Every structure is written in structure tokens, then in C-alpha cells.
Simulated scan of single mutants.
Amino acid sequence: MDSLQLQRTYLDLTTPHVADACMRLGIAVRCAPAGIRPLWSESHIVGRACPARHYGSVDVFLEAIDRAAPGDILVVDNGGRLDEACVGDLVTLETALAGLRGIVIWGLHRDSSELRTIRLPIFSLGTLPTGPQRLETQEAAALTSARCGEHEVTSDDFVLADDDGVIFMPLSQAQGVSELAAAIRDTERSQAARMQLGTNFRKQARFDEFLATRNADESITFRQHLRSIGGAIEE
């Protein structure tokens, strides 16, 4: 699935929809650390991962951007450091001018005011005025993989990020995940609409039936019951 297809397919899917779909399909749910948040609310980005490991200089980002395609998302590995900001306004502007969709940073950013003006979606652990005061040797894999928390991300992955967080998935699974995520989304929207009209969720979920079934067989879970009636609220 190319960048344009990703944009069209995941435009109305959230990270919770996708996480639930991954769980049902048996695909590992790879989320960025919970502390990685968008610079402003209502951010929603999707695109192929463009990894870059930071060693104290912005040249690695420029090289990654040079290799990237429009629609990609720059995934910056700064080891989760909280003693320096590694992305500022110039790197962000360069990323935007190259047509990338956003930046996910396992680390900190700075120049927040300028970044809000540039308006390229930024997800990071937070902000700090101080930039890098080190310069380390760049590793051979600096542009082929990046870590984000406990997970490794490569260009074989794509990124979906919104107000609930950041999730990484294999590009090869994009279609199957999107189809199930859309079904989960539609089910939940239908359930919510019925609740707004007065039908509570216990009635929709036939909760009395579940309790009776569980009393007869303690191994039956609510999740199994929901699946059996086509409901969706947890996975």
C-alpha cells in the first residue's frame, strides 16, 4: 500500500480502532511510549516510516529526508533522552518542505512556537530549550532502523498517530488491519448512536444473557460473548 492509499484508507481510523484490529488478527501491537504526545490536539497522521537515529547532529535527519518519499513520517530515535532537544524549527520546516506528513520523536523537541506556525504534526516526549551538546559516531544502521521505546521501526512499517498515541504496523498488513478496524469503528459508532437514543449498552450487549451463560460456564468471558453477538467495546 503506497502513501496515497494509506492516506485514503486510514483517514477515518483511530489508533484505538487499529490496536483492537491488530489484537483480533494476532498482530503484535507496537505502540510508542505513552509519554509521546502531539504538540497540539486533533493531530492525525499516517504514512510509511522513515527512520533516523540521532547522534548529536542534524545531518542524519537531512540524509533521511533526502531518502524519503512524500507522505512518509520521520521517526527519530534519540534513545528517549530528556537532557536535550533533537528536533527544532529548521529540521521541521525541511521535513515539511519535502512533503513528509509528520515527525515522531523518541526524545524531545524545541522551538514550540515556530513549530505551531509550521504546523507539521509533531509527536514527542516533550520540550526543552537545550539542543545537543555531544557528537557521537553515526552507526551503519542509522538510516535503516529506529527504536521507539521497546520497539524497532523500519521502512517496512507504517505509522498511525493521533491524540491517543502512536502505533507502528507492518506495511504488509495494512489492508487487512484497515478492513477490520473499519468494521470495529462502524460497530462502535452504531452502538454509541443507539445509546444516545436511549438504548443502554447493557441491553445492546445482552448483558443478562452473558451473566446467565457465565453462571453456567465460568470459563466464558465477556469478550467471547461480545464477539458471538457482533459487539465491540474491548479486545
Rank of each mutant, 00 (worst) to 15 (best):
D2F: 11
L6E: 13
L6Y: 08
Q7S: 14
Q7M: 11
D12T: 14
T14S: 15
T15I: 14
H17C: 11
L25N: 08
G26S: 01
A28K: 07
A28E: 15
V29P: 01
P33Y: 02
P33T: 10
I36W: 04
I36Y: 00
R37D: 00
R37K: 15
P38T: 11
L39M: 09
E42I: 04
E42G: 04
S43Y: 00
I45V: 15
R53V: 09
R53W: 04
H54W: 12
P70A: 15
G71K: 06
D72G: 08
I73W: 14
L74R: 09
V76C: 04
G79H: 07
G80V: 10
L82C: 08
L82Q: 12
L82W: 02
D83F: 12
G88W: 00
L90E: 12
T92P: 04
E94R: 08
G99I: 10
R101A: 15
W106N: 13
L108E: 03
D111K: 01
S112I: 01
L115Y: 00
L115W: 00
S124G: 09
S124R: 09
L128T: 05
P129A: 09
G131W: 06
R134E: 09
R134N: 11
A140R: 13
A140E: 15
A141E: 15
T144N: 06
G149T: 02
H151A: 08
V153N: 13
V153C: 10
S155R: 14
S155M: 09
S155Y: 02
D156L: 10
D157L: 11
V159K: 11
L160H: 07
D162L: 08
D163E: 10
D164I: 00
L171C: 10
Q175Y: 05
V177R: 10
S178K: 06
A182Y: 09
I184T: 01
I184P: 02
R185L: 04
R185I: 08
D186F: 06
R189D: 07
A193W: 03
M195Y: 14
Q196S: 10
Q196N: 13
L197F: 02
G198N: 12
G198F: 03
F201K: 03
F201E: 11
E209S: 11
E209A: 11
F210V: 11
T213C: 08
N215W: 06
N215I: 02
A216C: 05
E218M: 02
T221N: 10
R223F: 12
R223G: 07
R223S: 11
R223W: 06
R223T: 11
H225G: 05
R227K: 07
G230M: 10
G231W: 05
E235L: 08
E235R: 13
E235C: 03
